[in-house]
């Protein structure tokens, strides 16, 4: 037996959570792109979090924590979502089935590791992945995973394991779906506030968050050879930064480009020359992040000598370029 949400269209996205929000809204007839969802949620960030370790290395985040994008967009645009967690896995799967049978589009938080359709090299224990279930075919779920080109399928035991994986950021079976979406959404009205809020996040008065956080990491890189004794460890650390930046959840440069795309869309919607210029500057910041990643990898590969000072300077330049954007956007009135 097949049941699926009629007329569902998969939307290939750069990032899972923004992709899920955008897909849900588009499914309900609203033209909200992934970039717009990201911008409205004030999703761009930077955080260096040494107390959270991934295989012994610190967590470096380039965007706001999981679920904040869904909640952020929801708050700005004034639609309602139901969120539900489960202590009993079987009940969590039954409830999902019930909603899917009604033809609803359901969002889930899952681990990446247990999803069988992920390529082997991308399967890490990361618990804050998001995907949509849009139907069921016998015992297989029809899944729209925003970071995949096309829809995929997932068997029940794997999906259950992925939804109820334990550990840091455990999803606890979280599922969510819209309960009420108004006919028109106040996109233009909300853009300036969302931009100012994001500027505030980047200017956070905390040493390891936002612009300060980028400079903190830059300082850390400068002294890396004194902290880590072997060259191998230094390289693993640098590789880790690049990996956090480019792969896990899109990362540093990727998010800068998404935000630049948002600024461009916002510039068109509000007819603002200032936002258009900001968008171009943010693109340059993204390019600089990629340059930093490229240089780091070159050094790891020994194609260039290990020069921590020059890498630290590259990263500082990322902060400087971003600061030039946020300085102006801080006061943005629309």
């Amino acid at each position: 037996m097949t049941s699926s949400s009629p007329t569902f269209r998969h939307y290939h996205s750069a990032h899972c959570e923004t992709g899920v929000v955008s897909s849900i809204l588009q499914h309900h007839g609203h033209d909200i792109s992934e970039a717009m969802a990201f911008g409205l949620a004030s999703g761009l960030s930077f955080a260096y979090i040494p107390i959270v370790k991934l295989n012994g290395l610190p967590l470096i985040a380039y965007r706001m924590p999981p679920k904040s994008i869904i909640k952020g967009v929801q708050k700005r645009l004034g639609f309602n979502m139901a969120f539900q967690k489960f202590s009993d896995a079987a009940k969590g799967m039954d409830t999902l089935d019930k909603h899917v049978e009604q033809g609803k589009l359901v969002g889930l938080q899952t681990s990446v590791y247990w999803l069988p359709y992920f390529p082997e090299d991308m399967r890490f224990h990361f618990n804050a992945h998001n995907l949509l279930v849009y139907g069921k075919d016998n015992e297989e779920y029809l899944v729209s995973d925003p970071v995949f080109e096309d829809v995929v399928r997932c068997d029940k035991p794997s999906l259950q394991k992925a939804r109820f994986a334990k550990g840091a950021l455990a999803p606890k079976g979280l599922m969510y779906y819209p309960t009420h979406i108004p006919k028109s959404l106040p996109v233009e009205r909300e853009i300036p506030g969302a931009i100012r809020k994001n500027a505030k996040i980047m200017y956070a008065p905390l040493p390891m968050i936002g612009l300060k956080g980028i400079r903190y990491l830059s300082g850390k890189i400068r002294k890396l050879d004194k902290q880590l004794k072997t060259e191998r460890k230094v390289k693993l650390y640098l590789g880790h930064i690049v990996r956090m930046q480019e792969e896990i959840g899109t990362g540093g440069a990727g998010f800068r480009f998404i935000y630049a795309s948002f600024l461009q869309e916002a510039a068109d919607r509000l007819n603002s020359a200032q936002l258009k210029e900001s968008s171009e500057m943010m693109t340059e910041a993204g390019d600089q992040w990629r340059q930093f990643a490229l240089n780091a990898v070159k050094m790891c590969k020994k194609r260039a000598n290990l020069d921590l000072d020059s890498l630290a300077d590259d990263l500082r330049l990322c902060a400087d370029k971003e600061q030039a954007v946020w300085r102006e956007l801080r006061k943005f009135k629309g």
């Binding site: 792969e247 990643a293 790891c300």
Partner: peptide
Amino acid sequence: WEAEEFATVMAVEQ
């Protein structure tokens, strides 16, 4: 992207 691939492969190999 070659740079990203290198970092991923390094982590997987570790």
